[in-house]
Design a protein around this nucleic acid. Structure first.
Length: 488
RNA sequence: GGCGACGUCGCCAAGUGGUAAGGCAAGGGUCUGCAAAACCCUCACCGUGGGUUCGAGUCCCACCGUCGCCUCCA
């Protein structure tokens, strides 16, 4: 059973073989950097983070491109999002872009999302955008309008609608036409827009000073870094129409070849409203959670666990109960890793418990089986929970477990839970700094003192140490073979 | 109105034809100085009604309910 991916383009799971052997080219629509990222962004980018991590785990050489949209993404009113924010905060547009691009990377770093190999900005690619538009004009697929806009003429592309499964005659026509536009058909979209005097983000073009349309940016950048045809295009489902559909139309027309071979779209994240009905986040409803907000309440691994316990294609409701459930489930997984590492500190060199290596092999097989099935992360987490029961049983059994087996257990969690899913921290990340070492030493000293008190049946002193440590967020567990501690 | 998706135990959730993974919660036990953690046991006729099939949560139809998109959105 090889890797299968649900391809939105064909609405079915298909076996995945990259275009170039051993190498996967993937493009994911990045955010428009005009505000702090919210938990919906976290769902999308954590999902693709696991896709990329898993492809690498499977041995593929992955080239991952995720753009930053910093121009041309307009609001209903026709205003550019970046420009509007800039005028509101009395800053230059590129200050806004810089501020929120940094904020975005900070958030992604905090969530343990591996950075894309290339994070191209739309504003830096006007030569590529213009070249593509010129090709489309030469082909007769795009027209320069009387106002020096360039519009893509959708009726020229017979396959328009193949991704989102829409046909033009089914759409409500003319719902929104910008008064500054002079396009002839409502479904046509802008490749290039002439800049009004107040539009200070502007570039020279053969059609005068202007700026690119949102859709052409992704087409131009994907082609530049990944080629005309590449393996996977990702994004959130909410962009399937019009954005992704327009990308396909203009790219396949201009390049005269297939654009992305596989389309992977992530289900939306909603938030319960006052009646508990899931709705999209919006600032006006007061249900807008930034990643920074969420990270104050839950650690990154817990947020990732929450996101990854449902399949990436499904919609998810961001609720406190679900988050708390994810937290407890994660604590169970991390608890056994902590226990394993604690035992490793003092373990003897023998190979006791070697029969357990077979369990680890089977775990790895089942995990791969799950992830091979369209990146079924929930299935992968369930496999880790099954392993966790077995490891707990082993470590509580009293039989001697040698260093080799403990290391193999740790490696299994490190690779599957850490490298692929990003929910099991490294020892170092959990506190490898000098101060953390000192703290651990102090805690061990207190634990030893308590052990002596218990041996002397001085339970008052023992409980005092335990209670004080608990108040500081350090939980103790007395096990047959000694006391272990963990930071809660 | 059109397009798409979803409805599985109190909660979250996997499962695209062969008698329902996993986590949380709950109840009962084991262990423990007491705890905590862990382990064991218990806990689902898969929205409703039809149909196809030897056999359906899984396929088809209808209905009910929910969500998303229809040129702002990851």
């Amino acid at each position: 059973m090889a890797l299968h991916i649900y391809n939105v383009l064909h609405r079915e799971k298909m076996p995945f073989e990259p275009l170039h052997e051993g190498r996967v080219h993937i493009y994911v629509c990045g955010p428009t950097v005009y505000d702090h990222a919210h938990v919906g962004h976290a769902k999308t980018y954590v999902s693709f983070d696991v896709v990329v991590r898993y492809l690498r785990f499977r041995g593929y050489d992955v080239l991952y491109v995720q753009n930053l949209t910093d121009v041309g993404h307009l609001l209903d009113s026709g205003e550019d999002r970046i420009l509007k924010k800039a005028s509101q905060s009395q800053a230059l547009p590129m200050q806004i872009v810089e501020t929120y691009a940094r904020s975005y990377f900070d958030d992604m770093d905090a969530l343990g999302v591996v950075r894309p190999d290339i994070s191209p900005r739309a504003s830096g690619h006007s030569p590529e955008q213009i070249a593509m538009i010129e090709t489309l004009i030469a082909r007769g697929d795009a027209k320069v309008t009387a106002r020096d806009n360039v519009d893509y003429e959708v009726h020229r592309w017979p396959e328009y609608g193949k991704l989102s499964n829409r046909r033009l005659d089914e759409q409500e026509a003319g719902a929104r036409i910008d008064p500054h536009d002079d396009k002839r058909r409502a479904e046509d979209f802008a490749l290039w827009k002439a800049a009004e005097p107040e539009h200070i983000m502007r570039w020279d073009s053969p059609w005068g000073v202007g700026y690119p349309g949102w859709h052409i940016e992704c087409s131009a950048m994907a082609k530049k870094y990944l080629g005309a045809t590449f393996d996977i295009h990702g994004g959130g489902v909410d962009n399937i129409f019009p954005h992704n559909e327009c990308e396909i139309a203009q790219s396949e027309a201009a390049n005269e070849t297939l654009f992305a071979r596989f389309w992977m779209l992530v289900g939306s994240l909603t938030v319960p409203d006052e009646f508990g009905i899931p709705v999209k986040m919006s600032k006006s409803l007061g249900n807008f959670y930034t990643i920074k907000d969420a990270l104050k309440l839950y650690r990154a691994e817990v947020l990732r666990t929450f996101i990854l316990t449902s399949h990436y294609r499904n919609p998810v409701v961001f609720s406190e109960e679900a988050l708390d459930g994810a937290r407890k489930g994660w604590e169970r997984l991390y608890g056994v890793v902590r226990l394993t590492r604690e035992k490793l500190r003092t373990a003897g060199p023998g190979d006791g418990g070697a029969a357990f290596l077979d369990v680890l092999d089977k775990t790895r097989q089942k995990f791969i089986e799950a992830l091979d099935d369209d990146f079924n992360a929930p299935g992968g987490i369930a496999v880790l929970h099954d392993l966790t029961r077995e490891v707990n049983t082993l470590l509580n059994s009293g039989q001697p477990v040698g260093r080799a087996v403990l290391e193999a257990i740790d490696t299994t969690y490190r690779e599957l839970g850490g490298d692929v899913l990003g929910i099991i921290p490294d020892e170092a990340a959990a506190g490898g700094a000098a101060s953390a070492e000192r703290e651990a030493g102090l805690i061990r000293l207190l634990v030893d003192m308590r052990t002596e008190a218990r041996a002397a049946r001085d339970f008052a002193a023992a409980d005092r140490i335990r209670d004080q440590l608990a108040a500081l967020g350090v939980a103790l567990e007395d096990r047959p073979d000694g006391t272990v501690w963990r930071v809660s």
